[in-house]
Design a protein around this nucleic acid. Sequence first.
DNA 1: TTGTTATATGTAACCGGTTACAGAAAAGAG
DNA 2: CTCTTTTCTGTAACCGGTTACATATAACAA
Lengths: 324, 324
Amino acid sequence: MATIKEVAKEAGVSVATVSRVINNNGYVNDETRKRVEKAIQSLNYQPNDVARSLFKKQSQTIGLMVPDIMNPFFPELARAVEDTASKLGYTVILCNTDEDIEKEQMYLNTLLRKYIDGLIVVSNTLTAKQIKRLNVPVVTVDREISKDIPTIIVQNTAGGRMATRYLKEIGCERIAHLKGPDHIRNANERCCGYKEEVHNEPWFKEDYIIEGHYEMESAIKATYQLLTRYPDIDGIFAGNDIMAIGAIKAVHQLGKKVPDDVAVIGFDGIALAKAATPELTTIAQPIYEMGRMAANLLIDLIEKKKIEKTFYNLEVELVKRQST
Amino acid sequence: MATIKEVAKEAGVSVATVSRVINNNGYVNDETRKRVEKAIQSLNYQPNDVARSLFKKQSQTIGLMVPDIMNPFFPELARAVEDTASKLGYTVILCNTDEDIEKEQMYLNTLLRKYIDGLIVVSNTLTAKQIKRLNVPVVTVDREISKDIPTIIVQNTAGGRMATRYLKEIGCERIAHLKGPDHIRNANERCCGYKEEVHNEPWFKEDYIIEGHYEMESAIKATYQLLTRYPDIDGIFAGNDIMAIGAIKAVHQLGKKVPDDVAVIGFDGIALAKAATPELTTIAQPIYEMGRMAANLLIDLIEKKKIEKTFYNLEVELVKRQST
DNA sequence: TTGTTATATGTAACCGGTTACAGAAAAGAG
DNA sequence: CTCTTTTCTGTAACCGGTTACATATAACAA
């Protein structure tokens, strides 16, 4: 790898001049510029980002911290973030935290030491204090951490209402809710939306709300028990798509049909939902869009552009498919 | 952020001594060490990785280049790579290339400028020449690029045979193959395995091999056409799990049942396969294991450890589920 | 013609670490 | 007691860029 010094020597100028050419600032004579460009070409020179970072105290790198990239919600988010970042000249460091405070803190330190320019984070455990200590812009996605941290979320409560109302509309008369974990805010919000729609129904029981862990196994088990105990349930609103697929499996295990005997609706709109059989009706979040907005917002903050809004509460969309 | 100079001043020593303490090398008096450690504590000092990288010409960072993290094979791979790298003190930069030569070359340059220590790559388009120009260790996964580039693949041909033989064993008498794209080596290998098993069968026709793009839409369409033309097909070996799910959908569209009328087997063993209805029988690759091995091997190469093997051809496993 | 401004380029300090080298003190050997 | 070796610490060069500042010439205005 050639250095700026070698280029300077080759072109017969000082390193300052070469630097001016590559950064396109300051005065450079046209003749000189051409000589320098030729030298850059012939040496196949690439400026060293590390040296540049050291001086500029920024690395053109952002961190993306998610609980687990294997959870199907995150690949799409990650893709959106990476696409956007890359387009704007930034690189993305991927961090899986399992929502483990120690891993998160470890990564925060690592990223800081690498002069990361900003961070996109999905976490329930991270505190506002930890984030502020970083002294770099942070955008949170899918979960709110604090009012003064830029945030991109969706209207979970409205989505919960929308899902439940839709089940009512298509004729369900005993609707259960397979809720996400209690410590995750959006799980409770979605549940709220459900409650708003059903708490006045004569048939409603608190027992119709059961909890899963946003993954399949627990959802299957919970649904199985629920349907055994309350066989007249004819609609299930699951807190996310994975659990909805688990619910469908449980329904099948009991020899019932989806959607004929029990209609099932999910939440998230992951790609998997369309691959399921029957294809899953769901409240779709604009996942890619969220990632894109998060990256754009973060980079605007990094580059101190003028920002109109730092809090986005995006709409969700009912996607009707075969499971309802 | 405190610097080494401030620590040195606080502890009343030179920066060299502080450096010796944090790197735990050279001679340092116990008393002095304690003073320095105290100063580090009290200033909450974290060494600056960028400065360190500049001098050491390495960044404790590796690149992970995949076609598209949204393809369900890659999140698990990425997770394994990240887990392993992080455990060994490395950070992972995520690159989606869409197998686009320009994006790949762009990323190669970017990574090089950042003093990346090594690269894990999944690509058909990248050439051995491009990779050697990098002058950093590279491990390829899932695809072979060149004999002298460390590689981790699975026994695709054997897997293809295994899948086809299993369909025969359970009684299928007309087995079709939904092949992956022609430019992807593993697609052809899997197809080879299929051919080896069927080319002597009296019923075999070349027409039983149809091509999809390793995604769902094309697989549905292709399968639909195939089954319309050859209604007596009773077994389908799909080149990957996504296409297998597409095949199942097509079978259903034609009013037939899986596995009763048509048995379907996939390849890859992605998480999705278990979420499908019916749950998908598949030839499972040890995806996580592959990522872990790739990361371990790469880091051994980076750290110039002794390497026993640089080429792993891993076994695949038949996972029997409901679709057969 | 002289003073001012725009253009062009180089020198050297700086970013925050690491380490070669040198010098001094302490420990050990003969 | 002298000589060698080990321990301890500091000075300064270096990694490869960026940029403040100095200097010089050309262009322009008065």
